[in-house]
Structure formats: C-alpha cells, structure tokens
Design a protein around this nucleic acid. Structure first.
Length: 586
RNA sequence: GGCCCCGUAGCUCAGUCGGAUAGAGCACAGGAUUCCUAAUCCUGGGGUCGCAGGUUCAAAUCCUGCCGGGGUCACCA
C-alpha cells in the first residue's frame, strides 16, 4: 500500500465531511492537494497542504481551514497527533501500530512489496533503448543508455504498466554498406589475399576478421570474382546478422534482453516509409522547399540550396521543417524513424519512451513532432537523453583509444568491474547530467562505493538471519513466521525510523516510474542502507539495541522481523535495478 | 547565431507535478570495534541555490533576460 495515497483519500473524505456539515463551501477542487512526508521528520510522519490549496476557492484563511480539518484528522485511529504549522500545513504523526502493520505487510508480501497497479490505466508503453548501429560491438558509451532503458522498463512494470522493450536495428543506409565492404576485405584476407591496409572510411576493427573467416568457411570463394552488386547484399546480411548476435550477447552480459527487435531495412522493404510519407502528404504536412544553411557558423563546403521534401515539423513545435529525402532520392534516417514510431503506434503503444545519447539532442523535437503528427495526438513520446560518461581510473581520465589498448567495448567494462556494478553505478546520477565512472572506485569496498554500501547492508541482514537460529534456539526466521512476531516490541525511534523509510518504497516506485527517473531507486536504496547501518552501530554503543538478545527471545524475534524486512526491501529495489543481492561479502 | 542539457557546501551530487530553518557523501576535526569485520557508525564547522527581474499566500523548483560549462545544427546515423 502507498500510505500517502491512502491518507490523501482520507483527507479528501474529511473535507467532504466538512462540506456536508456546512463548515466548508461545496465544489472545492482537491486535485492540487498533496499528502507527503514533511521535509523535516521532526514535523511528523505525513503532512498535507490541503488548507493552503483550499484557502482561496473557499474564501477562508488557511489556518482556519487547517484547524477544522486537523480536528477531523486527529480523530482517525491511525493518527496520534496533529499540528498546524507554518502557513497552514497539517502535520500528522501516525501510531506505532500503523508502522508495525506496514512491517508485517512487507514480510507477507516479500519482494513484491512496492508492486502497484498505478500504471494500469496508462495504456501500453514501449521503451526503445540502445538501438546502436550494428557496425561493431557495443562501446562503453552505450552502457548508460542500456542500463537506464532496462531499469526504467523494470520500474514501469513494477508500477503496473504494460511494458514492451525494443531495439531498433539501423540496418539500412550507407553505414551498413560500408560495414559490408569492410567485412568483404576480411573475407578476401581469409581466402589468402594480402590486404595491406584497411582504406580510410572503412571499419578497420579486428572484430571483422572472424566474420570474414566465417563467410569464407560458409561460402568458399563464391563471392570472390563477382560484381559488388552481386556479393554486397549477401555480405551485408551476413555481417549485420553476426554483429547483432554479438550485440545481443553483450547486452545479455549486462542482463538485458529486449522483447522486440525491429529492422529498419524490413520496415523500408515492407513499404512502411512510403505509406507514412503518403499519409503525411495527404494531410498537407509535406511540401517542397529550400532550407537555409545554418547561421552563425561557416556554411558547409558542399552546401547547395536545393528543393527537397520537407515535413512541417514547425507545426508541431520544432524549430525548422525537416527533410525526408536525401539528394539521391532515398529516405532520410528521420523518415525511416517516423515509420518506426508509426509502426509502434499501430502495434498499440500510446506511450513511447526513447533512450538516446546526448549527441542526439537536436533530434528530439522533430521526433516528438513526428509522433504527434502520425498519431494525430493520440500517442506520447518521451525522450530521455543520457549524458556522456567519462571513464576514469583513480581520478585520471582514461583515453579510450584502441591503439593504447584501453577499454573500448562494453564487454571490456563488464569484464573489468562486473555486471552488477555497471548497472548500479550508471544510476548514481540523474541521466541528464554528465558523470564520471571511476574503474578503481567501482570495485572498491568502501562508503565511497554505493553498490558496495547497499550490498553490505543486505549481507549484514542475511548474516544475522543465518546465525539467529543457532543463538536463539532454532528460531524460525522465515518471513511468514516472523510476520507473526510481537512487533509492538519494536519501540525504539531508530527502529521505527527504519520501518518508515521502508514503508515509503511503494511511493518511490510510483513516483520514479511516473517521472521516468530510475536513478531514484538507487538513491532510495542508499537511504535504506544508511538507516540500517546506523541502527546496526547503535547496538555497539548500547547492547540492548542489538538484534539478537539471547535472554529475551520475543524481542529478538521482533527484531529479526525488522532485519528480514530490510533484506526484503533491499532485494526488491535491487531487483528493479537488475542487480543480484549478495548473501555475504567475505 | 538557433536549439537542448547542466550551474546547489572546498569537491561529487540529491532535492517530491512550487511548500516550513535547502540535504547527503567525500574532504577536514574529534570520537565509537562481542551480531559481517572501523569495509561501518556518531558528533562538528561549512551556502548570495550562477546573476537580475517577474508570477503568488509560498520559488533551488515556474516565466523572461543575461553570464559560465557541455552537446548539437540540410543530405550521416
């Protein structure tokens, strides 16, 4: 249960009661009313701005409304204390029983705690991420987008959304042809020819050597003495397929497997682009025009003012109208991507989320404009831009050149620090701010390393639970058994504080999902771990606060419930992040 | 020059569809070891929320204009 939502409904009910009594005028709008945790916990457990929101429409002073409402709320069984403070906040303190019930709820629900049907009514959501060109293995630069997209999808699922994850394969266009020509050189090499140097503009990477070998093995010299027109389509298919296999393997190493892979080439071949062009043309959204060269910077050498097919993106909030065809008459990348998004809309997605790198920032407005146009305003596109990640080692920036033998591929990074560490650390910053990723800190076991810090808290919990049966005469530490413990014995403020933080998890899930901000989960887990470590250390100063009290088994049992719940919450959060909780850290 | 993102403590960053006295970690100073270990915790100082206006009961948050950093700017993807 999201307790804040629960009390928001309660506050609204009490307002209705006051209206029925004639104490407040009818017809008040309560949509801006919020029930939240107060900024300062000394103010209470929950707070509402109801009185301030209602003051103007009711034509009353905020404090007067607050006094009326506070008297009503004070009568609720879960509320032990209400105060009116500041400009008209109503602060409430909740009964210990209420918090104990939340603890029991966590234990009986397990890691499903925080699951919600919040997103049920939102319609189908599509999250497209990575979508890297299949011209080579994934680079470290892809790591952030991959993690952000994957965790966002997991988060949305937990919040009740109907989510599909997708990878758009850019297998049309000139770059995959260049890839094919590069692979062809490796193929000739495999058949014994000497290729001194990979020409400028080709892909020189060694990863194409096995591709050439595999092709030679499969087809022998079949493609050796034929025209490019003959071999190119086959070599292209062959190479792209190999590259995509590798991309999928690299993503799998990060724990990512997308639901749907859409091929740009197949969309084009199926006529989807022609169709969307026709649709837009029929609606008068395409015209032939000449674009101005960009101002404020030198005009490109090959600039030629020429008439081209333009999409009226400016009608949907873009800055200029955007070209749909290249000078050779073929579709632009943008055209194909419009077809891609229309295809998603036709498959029933009314909410689309694209995860892009920050270098695609200039593409955002036109794509949103296109989605509005092709869906006639019925679909919504959110684009999350992931800023660059600077790889560091001991505070020194790492040059990521292949020549220096440094890390270049995503796989290298995973091999170096591990999948869980990559996943967690990519979420320790908001996605739209640049971040540094320090390879030394990433594997360090210290407070500096949030992955470790959270895992350590979980391991401590598990450790105590493992040793409890020995020290407490075979105590049953299963969650079901512990939910039956006398939780009223948890009365220390520090213990209750931990419960309160854990009880906030459902709200965190909903809010992070709604905001499309998966990093909030990582920050929340840090808070849970911090509260737990703090409680742990209190037992060092005051042994009566230790979890295991051999002479008072009932207290121990209640505290085991607290520890079990903490492990559960951390595991639940880590599950959203796709990180495995560890049992021990030895 | 246009557009997008960022600007919060010495450093790295949080900050809830606008809410009360703006928070955390690092660093610095001092202190705490029978549960998983001081790999952790506690206490302390530290701020014109880039600048200037505006909107209102209330602005780090929304609007406008500047300053600084990054990205991007027909036909590539």
């Amino acid at each position: 249960m999201n307790l804040f939502q629960h009390f928001q409904a309660e506050v609204t009910r009490q307002i209705d009661a006051l209206i029925a009594e004639g104490a407040l005028p009818a017809g008040l709008d309560t949509t801006r009313l919020t029930v939240e945790p107060p900024r300062d916990t000394s103010h209470g457990d929950i707070t509402t701005n109801a009185a301030m929101v209602l003051a103007k429409p009711a034509g009353m002073k905020p404090r007067d409304i607050a006094d009326l409402l506070a008297a009503k709320l004070d009568a609720l069984p879960e509320v032990t204390e209400t105060t009116v403070a500041g400009p008209g906040f109503i602060n409430m303190r909740l009964a210990d029983d209420f918090w104990h019930a939340r603890l029991a709820e966590i234990l009986t629900t397990g890691t499903a705690y925080g699951d919600s049907d919040f997103g049920k009514a939102a319609g189908k959501v599509n999250v497209e991420y990575v979508s890297a060109n299949p011209t080579g293995p994934l680079h470290v630069a892809h790591a952030r987008g991959a993690v952000v997209g994957d965790v966002l999808a997991r988060l949305l699922k937990k919040a009740g959304y109907d989510v599909t994850t997708e990878y758009y394969i850019n297998d049309a266009g000139a770059q995959v042809e260049t890839l094919a020509r590069s692979a062809y050189l490796r193929y000739r090499e495999a058949l014994g020819e000497t290729v001194d140097e990979i020409p400028e503009g080709m892909y020189p990477g060694e990863y194409l050597i096995p591709v050439g070998q595999a092709l030679a093995e499969a087809d022998g010299d079949k493609w050796l003495n034929v025209d490019e027109d003959t071999w190119l389509p086959h070599v292209r298919e062959f190479t792209v397929a190999r590259m995509m296999t590798q991309v999928k393997e690299d993503l799998a190493a990060l724990g990512i497997q997308q639901d749907v892979y859409t091929s740009e080439k197949e969309l084009v071949a199926a006529g989807a682009v022609d169709a969307v062009y026709q649709t837009l043309a029929d609606r008068g959204l395409i015209y032939t025009g000449v674009l101005e060269p960009p101002k404020g910077k030198p005009t490109p050498d090959d600039w030629e003012p020429r008439p081209q097919s333009l999409f009226r993106a400016t009608e949907f909030g873009d800055d200029i109208d955007r070209p749909l065809k290249k000078s050779d008459g073929s579709w632009t990348y943008f055209s194909n991507d419009i077809a891609n998004h229309l295809d998603k809309f036709k498959r029933g997605f009314t909410q689309m989320i694209d995860i892009f790198g920050a270098d695609h920032g200039g593409y955002v407005k036109r794509m949103k404009a296109a989605v509005t146009a092709v869906s006639e305003g019925k679909a919504e596109l959110d684009i999350k831009l992931c800023q660059m990640v600077h790889l560091m080692k001991n505070g020194e920036p790492m040059r990521m050149s292949k020549r220096a033998g440094n890390f270049v591929t995503l796989r290298d990074l995973i091999d170096e620090v591990g999948r869980d560490v990559v996943r967690f650390l990519m979420l320790t910053r908001k996605s739209d701010t640049q971040m540094e990723f320090d390879l030394a800190k990433a594997v360090e076991q210290s407070r500096d390393n949030p992955v470790f810090y959270v895992q350590y808290a979980h391991a401590r919990c598990r450790s105590v639970l493992r040793s409890a049966p020995d020290e407490l005469a075979g105590l049953d530490t299963s969650a079901e058994a512990l939910a039956q413990a006398d939780l009223s014995l948890l009365a220390d403020p520090a213990e209750l504080d931990l419960v309160k933080i854990m009880a906030a998890w459902p709200r965190i899930v909903e809010q992070a999902a709604e905001a499309h901000e998966p990093h909030r989960v990582a920050f929340y887990l840090n808070d849970v771990a911090s509260a737990f470590h703090g409680l742990w250390n209190m037992g060092k100063d005051d042994t009566s606060l230790r979890f295991i009290q051999t002479d008072t088994p009932e207290i121990s049992r209640a505290r085991m419930a607290l520890v079990q719940a903490t492990a559960t919450i951390i595991a639940s959060g880590l599950d959203v992040l796709g990180v495995t909780p560890v049992e021990e850290l030895r």
